[in-house]
């Protein structure tokens, strides 16, 4: 009686069937449901990991790019400043040089003009002197021609000429 109760509470067929059903369910689900599901979860995880890595890489890259840009900008600014300074300096120097040159030129022109004036004056004086000499000779000869004879006239002329020559 005892064994009968036990047997009816635990029919061996139940146990076998349950075991079989569960194992079949396990295998089927692993094949048709859990496998693909875990596959896609894994895939998504990989995808997210990759995305994060890519984002991280991009961020780093852009940061480096930014730093580069900043440095380049700074350099460019520095260069511009230097160029302007140079140009200013050069302009100043050039202006100075131009002023210097024009001053020199003016000096030279002035000098030349002075020299010209001097030589012209000399020339004029010389011409005047010879003119005066010949005029005075002519006047003198005209005056003297009336009062002197040939001889004394000649002597006089000679004297005068000599005198004129010496004074020259």
């Amino acid at each position: 009686m005892q064994s009968l109760v036990l047997a009816s509470a635990f029919p061996i067929g139940n146990i076998l069937f349950q075991l079989l059903a569960f194992l079949i369910l396990l295998v089927l689900l692993r094949k048709f449901a859990w496998g693909p599901l875990m596959g896609i979860m894994k895939e998504r995880q990989n995808f997210i990991t990759n995305e994060i890595e890519a984002a991280e890489k991009n961020r780093k890259e852009s940061e480096a790019q930014l730093a580069l840009q900043v440095a380049e900008l700074k350099q460019a600014r520095e260069e511009a400043r230097m160029i302007i300074e140079n140009a200013k300096k050069q302009g100043e120097a050039q202006g100075e040089a131009i002023i210097q040159a024009s001053r020199k030129e003016a000096e030279r022109v002035k000098e030349e003009a002075l020299a010209d004036i001097a030589s012209e004056k000399d020339k004029a004086v010389a011409t005047l002197r010879s003119e005066v000499a010949s005029l005075s000779v002519m006047i003198a000869s005209k005056v003297i021609a009336k009062e002197l004879d040939e001889r004394s006239q000649e002597k006089l002329i000679h004297d005068y000429l000599q005198e004129a020559g010496e004074s020259k």
């Binding site: 029919p11 067929g13 139940n14 069937f17 569960f22 689900l29 048709f32 449901a33 859990w34």
Partner: peptide, 26 residues
Amino acid sequence: IDFDLSIVLMTTVSSIIVFLLAVLAT
């Protein structure tokens, strides 16, 4: 071998429900 048919039926039903649920969801 003794089979309790109600258990056989219910085990099968549960298995089928679980299977359908899981497979349809995926």
